[in-house]
């Protein structure tokens, strides 16, 4: 694999009014992988994701994507490569689900370009993948929290980027749609070589679907490793400050953490 592909974070930090919220932190993220960012509230997970998404510039240090510093990326070409779903994506204005998903094609056609056949195909595919076909003519703001989340995910998929950055995407989803979303992400990564970074609250979901877990604590990198490496009582206790134990899933054999 080309080592310039993916993210290269070097001594990046983010501070507001002199108070450092994140970093300095260094790490590399490859494509074709699912990374889970875990940690306590305020550990800097969402901030790191926002830096990766170019939502905020790093105060110090550099972040490069595909070998080019984020500062040098142009906005639209970057959006063709990287899609970001904020934690609270908003009510969706006055758009219907289909119109919202069409907005996801903006980086490809820009402010003036017309919707071409490729755009329409991408929109239809995204609607199918995110399971919002039955909602397509509803107003986004009239949907329930979980339905709305899926509409935004459809918009993100229509963007057809190489990397997906999602901030707690399973937060408002019911169990069925949580499982379906994680399976969909797994499928996309395996079939299309996408790279995915997720902020997740539930370490069990992270362990089950992700290739690697990255744990943050007080704005710095605590540890990173495969689910097998991190799903150990001591490692989890250092992340969450709560005594934890590990069970084994009776069928799949994946580790399951519980609070002791």
């Amino acid at each position: 694999m080309n080592d310039r592909s993916g993210y290269d974070v070097c001594e990046a930090s983010f501070s507001v009014d002199g108070r450092t919220i994140l970093g300095p932190i260094s790490l590399t993220l490859a494509k074709k992988q699912i990374y889970a960012l875990v940690g306590q509230n305020g550990s800097g997970k969402s901030t790191l994701l926002k830096l990766l998404a170019r939502q905020q510039p790093a105060s110090e240090g550099t972040i490069a994507f595909d070998g080019v510093s984020l500062k040098e990326w142009k906005t639209r070409p970057f959006a063709c490569r990287v899609a970001y779903l904020p934690q609270q994506p908003g009510t969706g204005g006055a758009l219907t689900v289909r119109e919202l998903v069409e907005v996801g094609r903006y980086p490809w056609h820009g402010p003036l370009g017309r919707m071409g056949a490729a755009d329409r195909a991408a929109v239809e595919e995204a609607i199918e993948l995110a399971d919002v076909a039955t909602l397509r003519d509803r107003l986004v703001e009239t949907l329930s929290g979980g339905e709305r989340q899926r509409a935004w995910i459809a918009m993100m998929l229509a963007q057809q980027s190489e990397v997906l950055l999602l901030d707690e995407p399973t937060d408002s989803l019911d169990l069925l749609h949580e499982v379906e979303l994680m399976r969909l992400i797994r499928r996309l990564v395996d079939a299309r070589n996408l790279g995915v970074v997720l902020v997740l609250h539930d370490v069990n979901v992270a362990a089950r679907y992700c290739d690697e877990i990255i744990a943050l604590r007080a704005g710095t990198l605590l540890t990173r490793g495969t689910p097998q490496e991190l799903m150990q009582p001591e490692a989890l206790e250092s992340i969450y400050d709560v005594p934890m134990g590990i069970l084994t899933h009776p069928q799949s054999g994946t580790p399951i953490a519980y609070v002791r």
């Binding site: 959006a79 779903l85 908003g90 119109e99 907005v103 903006y106 980086p107 402010p111 918009m155």
Partner: peptide, 23 residues
């Protein structure tokens, strides 16, 4: 007409608009 797409996208919120490549 040159502004319409922006005018539809901006009410979605700054994070969403920025993430699809609107400067």
């Amino acid at each position: 007409p040159f502004l319409l797409r922006w005018l539809d996208i901006l009410p979605l919120g700054v994070p969403a608009a920025a993430s699809i490549g609107v400067s």
